Simulated assay, not measured.
Amino acid sequence: MWRRRLLPLVLSTCILAVWPGWSTAGLLPQNSSEQVEITFWDSIKDSRNAGDYEAYLKTYPNGRFAPLAKARIASLRASASGASSASSTTSAAPAHVPAAPPASPTGAPAPAPAPIPVPPTQRAQPAPPARPAAATPSTAGHEIKDCAACPALIEVAPGSFTMGNNKNDPSEKPAHVVTIAHAFALGKYPVTIAQWNACVAAGACQRLTDIADHDQNAPAHNVSWDDAQQYVKWLTKASGKAYRLPTEAEWEYAARGGTATRYWWGDQMSQGKANCKDCGQPWRADGPNAVGSFAANPLGLYDMGGGVWEWVSDCWHSSYKNAPVDGRAWDQPYCEARVIRGGSWLDGHDYMLSSTRFKYDQSVRYTANGFRVAREMK
């Protein structure tokens, strides 16, 4: 009946609890800051990534688990330091020891509104969303590249589609028709580590941690919403074009690629379509694969499901009630929690649905969060 999810637990007042009268396979939010903190901790308590505990301490500096979080950080760093020292004294070629080992797929928190989603063990299969009221583009637009360092873009034609899903997650309701009146361009891939590093070299972006040994063509991750804003500001200056993050409506419109099914490829999971831990090969536990390793959707956009969660411009709202129907960003003053879409390599296939949405505090960096860019076609 309900798809089981964790909601993002960063400076929010939502927790997951089973409401009386609903199936135990479904979870709904309740207000309890204490339970928010407990659920946050439960989602990271087995992690071997120091950054997870740092994220907890940033949100709950005086929390009930703060002493344990500090101890875990010290232990992980001491272990990494000791391993590095031992490696440097051996005559054999030293093996690389990361500063903080990445979380295992079973112990990583699940970004269902808390750091990285803990994959559910039981989840009811949702019915497909309502069919769109008007045609959406089903073929790829032309490719655009505004400068040597700029990400490749795909033109997305205007059109209408049904956004959201009236089954399962309350945050995806109500399904509603959105009409995007003007063409826009969207990144063919998420922004890569190499592209991010071009911004770092220009002195406009901060160097990302825990990605030094990753493929430079892998998506940039461990990126906050604020970091992404720095990047698009630099890209705008470098290219002379007005870059930005996509709106949530633009993102889902493009992710669906003219489809109205659960996934862009249909209503059933299909191996090899997305970079997630049970989506088929290629897959690796320690980081996302290089962009473009999996099939593109009908618009020629890669990795709209899996790889990294992608920041969009909108402020988080707990449902689509009163959401704009013209595709613009749904913002509000003093917003702290922003929407992320698409799922990551650490999640299961149930997070690859075109309608899946979560949130994160905009200043928090988390290992599975990245982004792709957009701009107007004017």
Results as ranks from 00 to 15, higher is better:
residue 259 T to Q: 02
residue 352 M to Y: 05
residue 358 F to K: 06
residue 134 A to L: 11
residue 259 T to Y: 00
residue 102 P to H: 13
residue 255 A to S: 15
residue 179 T to F: 12
residue 66 A to N: 08
residue 283 W to C: 03
residue 21 G to E: 09
residue 322 N to F: 12
residue 272 G to H: 04
residue 78 A to Q: 14
residue 19 W to V: 11
residue 135 A to F: 06
residue 293 S to I: 03
residue 287 G to I: 01
residue 146 D to K: 03
residue 312 V to H: 05
residue 222 N to D: 12
residue 183 A to K: 14
residue 235 L to P: 07
residue 75 S to Y: 14
residue 111 P to Q: 12
residue 337 A to D: 15
residue 204 A to Y: 02
residue 70 K to Q: 12
residue 259 T to H: 00
residue 326 D to R: 09
residue 195 Q to M: 03
residue 38 I to N: 10
residue 38 I to Y: 09
residue 91 S to M: 14
residue 173 K to P: 05
residue 31 N to V: 14
residue 14 C to F: 13
residue 80 A to T: 13
residue 292 G to R: 04
residue 225 W to N: 00
residue 177 V to M: 07
residue 157 A to W: 04
residue 88 S to K: 10
residue 177 V to L: 09
residue 308 V to H: 11
residue 229 Q to M: 11
residue 229 Q to A: 02
residue 56 Y to N: 02
residue 312 V to I: 01
residue 172 E to K: 09
residue 96 H to E: 12
residue 357 R to T: 04
residue 17 A to P: 04
residue 37 E to W: 02
residue 129 P to G: 10
residue 329 A to T: 09
residue 301 L to V: 11
residue 91 S to A: 12
residue 334 Y to A: 15
residue 311 W to S: 00
residue 151 P to A: 04
residue 52 D to S: 07
residue 183 A to P: 13
residue 195 Q to N: 02
residue 276 C to P: 03
residue 11 L to V: 05
residue 352 M to H: 03
residue 281 Q to M: 01
residue 276 C to N: 08
residue 165 N to W: 08
residue 177 V to Y: 01
residue 213 D to C: 01
residue 18 V to K: 09
residue 117 P to T: 08
residue 283 W to V: 03
residue 27 L to Y: 00
residue 374 A to G: 04
residue 129 P to F: 12
residue 93 A to V: 13
residue 355 S to P: 06
residue 138 S to K: 14
residue 118 V to Y: 11
residue 123 R to F: 10
residue 335 C to H: 12
residue 160 S to R: 07
residue 268 Q to A: 15
residue 34 E to R: 13
residue 150 C to H: 06
residue 347 D to E: 15
residue 311 W to T: 03
residue 318 S to H: 07
residue 243 Y to K: 01
residue 79 S to C: 03
residue 310 E to F: 02
residue 173 K to F: 09
residue 36 V to R: 07
residue 358 F to E: 10
residue 374 A to W: 09
residue 8 P to W: 03
residue 345 W to V: 09
residue 334 Y to R: 10
residue 265 W to H: 04
residue 138 S to F: 07
residue 368 A to F: 01
residue 373 V to E: 02
residue 195 Q to H: 01
residue 283 W to E: 05
residue 314 D to I: 01
residue 203 G to A: 05
residue 290 A to Q: 09
residue 1 M to E: 10
residue 256 R to H: 06
residue 215 D to W: 07
